[in-house]
Amino acid sequence: MNPKPILLAAEGLNKSFDGYKAIHELNFYLDEGELRTVIGPNGAGKTTFLDLITGRTKPDTGTLAWDDSKHDLLRLNEYEIYRLGIGRKFQTPTVYTDHTVMENLILSLAGSRGIFHCLFGKTSSNQLDRIESILETIKLTSHAHRKAGTLAHGQKQWLEIGMLLAQDARLLLVDEPAAGMTDEETHRTGELLLSLAGKHTIVVIEHDMTFVRQISQGRKVTVLHQGQVLCEGPVEKVQNDERVIEVYLGRKSKAA
């Protein structure tokens, strides 16, 4: 019995777009319960990597195994992958703008996605309680009946995180949650993610180093560069790594 089963294993992943290698021989392992931060310069392949995991695009070669290799993600489509418990928050907040905040959460609730269920199923009082508590967590209780399209940018980000919570996903893939947020909002987002760590496995993609330091707290950080893992380790180690400094600051550091 492995005490920490490998939840997600990516091996030898390759994906190129018109000859541009977005992902190149990528190996990536994620343990159950981890809170992993992925950083890397623009074009490092971070979002493409999430696209591969969630089935938005298929890799040219390589494998993606889920839950101790019980499932091969490459054989599944977007909604089948979602149903395994892999939820995603997109880089630009993607909520249903013409639906209310409440309806956005109802649509994301864990449970059957069948047509019959959607026709005749009622939202149970348990589920309503759950929505109530999520609304509180994401501080949108007073906006429950507003159309999501009218929310402020930061609120939309939070709503999308709330949608992940409603789904009760095993793995949360969170793409730049702090983008466009104020410092205070960013900090609160960090606290929210930290409170979820342990209950869920989380992968956070982020640029903001203050935020990364806040949430990683000695946990493993992965640096992607040119579609490959450049180095992994605690944030202090990563920040002092020669190669990381080089890719972030350019060739200058080498010359100096």
Partner: peptide
């Protein structure tokens, strides 16, 4: 209506 407004997102909501 979600499909009408943002079909891709609906796929990523598991439908």
């Amino acid at each position: 209506r979600a499909i009408r407004d943002s079909e891709n997102r609906v796929l990523f909501s598991g439908y």
